[in-house]
Computed example of a mutant assay.
Amino acid sequence: MLKNISLSLFLFAGVLLTSSCSSPEKKAEKITMEVSSLALDTDPVCKMPIEGHLSDTLNFNGKIYGFCNTACKKEFEKNSETYLK
Rank of each mutant, 00 (worst) to 15 (best):
S36W: 03
L16Y: 07
D41I: 07
E34D: 14
K26A: 06
L38N: 00
T42Y: 10
A13D: 04
M33Y: 11
A39S: 10
C21R: 09
L9F: 12
K26D: 08
K27W: 05
T32I: 04
F10I: 07
P24S: 06
L38R: 00
S23P: 01
A28M: 07
S37Y: 09
S37M: 11
A39W: 00
I31V: 08
L17I: 12
A13Y: 06
V15G: 02
L9M: 12
S19A: 13
A39G: 01
S36F: 07
E25Q: 05
V15F: 08
M33L: 12
F12D: 03
T42R: 08
A28E: 04
S20D: 06
S22H: 11
E34Q: 13
I31Q: 12
E29A: 12
L38F: 01
S20N: 13
D41N: 14
S37N: 15
G14H: 02
S22E: 08
E25H: 10
T32M: 07
P24D: 03
L40Y: 09
A39Q: 01
A13L: 15
C21A: 13
S19C: 12
V35Q: 02
V15M: 14
P24E: 02
A13H: 06
V15E: 02
C21E: 08
S20Q: 10
T32S: 14
S20M: 14
I31N: 06
E29N: 14
L38Y: 00
T18E: 05
L38P: 00
A39H: 01
L38S: 00
S36Y: 05
L40V: 03
M33I: 14
A13R: 04
V15L: 15
K26T: 10
D41H: 15
A28R: 03
F10D: 06
P24F: 00
D41L: 13
I31R: 12
K27C: 02
A13C: 12
S19R: 06
E34R: 05
K26F: 02
P24A: 04
D41V: 08
T18Y: 11
L40K: 03
K30E: 11
S19K: 07
T42I: 07
I31G: 01
S23I: 03
L9Y: 07
S20E: 09
E29R: 07
S36K: 12
L9G: 15
T18S: 09
G14L: 04
M33F: 12
F10W: 09
A39T: 01
E25T: 10
L38M: 03
L17V: 10
A28K: 03
K30W: 09
D41T: 05
L9Q: 11
I31H: 05
F10C: 11
S23A: 10
S20L: 08
L9E: 13
F10P: 01
L9P: 01
T42E: 09
E25G: 04
A39F: 02
T32V: 10
